[in-house]
């Protein structure tokens, strides 16, 4: 049973990781907790649903949802965050993000109703055995696609021009702009990439659990934020590790401890980690400059 639960945990964790990446990338550059990120994930799941229902191939639908959320993420950044940047405290930006989050989830609830909607079974599922453990093919597909996206992201950050600019901005926004980097464009790109990953996460969750609903982003967003902090907020590999380990911890908590304390276990571990290592698993310690 252990190995099956481990795979369950990794599947859940990979969806957390995909959302956490968006949190951590945005945070790394503009130090903003983008609370609307969970809603982008929800919109991704619904956008995928509409495309699939209109008869598009699954992978094209996935791409479509990612592009849609890229634009949505950039739009949100342009309207709700950019006017605030540099002028006001980070707390104001956070409240603005909460406003966007409430706005987006209500918008979807008005449009689709608050009921849970069924996601069609687009990818046929079969289970196969490896030794004594049974794995469902859907889980394998989800793990593979997530891994692919994460490797792609690493390549993008390490090898391309925009990736280099993003790394520069995360070190020092002001110095980067003095070096001739178009900071606004880099931030836009960061939001776009993060949103696209969240959309992919949303759609895969929809396919796997066969259900989407307008408020699915709130708890998922909270958990993903926890994953990002756990891994060390601002660190891209940290978000991946944080997401996967949070998913595994949750599932193992249900499997071997107590399922009624599921959410508490995840948060308690997070708080413990922060006590022992405030910068998270992969985060770097930054001493405050005076």
């Amino acid at each position: 049973m252990f190995w099956e639960q481990l795979i369950n945990g990794l599947t859940l964790g990979s969806s957390y990781a995909l959302i956490a990446l968006g949190y951590t990338m945005v945070y790394g550059i503009v130090q903003l907790i983008n609370f609307a990120h969970g809603e982008i994930y929800m919109f991704g799941a619904f956008a995928g649903l509409f495309l699939v229902l209109s008869g598009v191939n699954v992978f094209i639908a996935l791409l479509g949802a990612m592009v849609f959320c890229m634009l949505l993420g950039m739009l949100v950044e342009r309207i709700a965050y950019r006017p605030l940047r540099g002028k006001s405290s980070r707390l104001s930006a956070l409240i603005s993000a909460i406003g966007v989050s409430i706005f987006l989830s209500t918008l979807m609830a008005l449009y689709r109703g608050t009921n849970t909607t069924r996601y069609p079974e687009i990818i046929g599922n079969s289970t196969f055995s490896v030794g004594s453990i049974q794995i469902s093919s859907l889980q394998v597909i989800i793990l593979l696609v997530s891994a692919l996206l994460m490797v792609g992201l690493q390549l993008l950050i390490q090898k391309t021009r925009i990736g280099k600019a993003m790394r520069a901005c995360s070190q020092d926004l002001e110095a980067s702009s003095l070096m001739g980097i178009n900071v606004n464009r880099v931030i836009s790109a960061t939001f776009a990439i993060g949103s696209a990953l969240a959309a992919a996460g949303g759609m895969m969750v929809g396919i796997y659990y066969n259900a989407v609903w307008p408020y699915m982003g709130t708890m998922a967003g909270l958990k993903a934020f926890a994953a990002a902090v756990l891994g060390g907020i601002g660190s891209v590999p940290g978000a991946m590790i944080g997401g996967l380990s949070l998913g595994v911890m949750e599932i193992m908590g249900v499997a071997y401890l107590s399922s009624s304390y599921k959410d508490a276990i995840a948060f308690a571990i997070l708080i413990l980690v922060l006590f022992i290592r405030p910068q998270g698993i992969m985060g770097q310690k930054i001493s405050k400059k005076v």
């Binding site: 049973m1 639960q5 369950n8 408020y215 499997a255 399922s259 009624s260 599921k262 959410d263």
Partner: peptide, 17 residues
């Protein structure tokens, strides 16, 4: 005997048990 929560979608661990 097991527990789930309203509003969640991931019941993989419970079903495996």
């Amino acid at each position: 005997e097991d527990t789930v929560n309203d509003g969640e979608t991931d019941f993989t661990a419970q079903v495996t048990k």
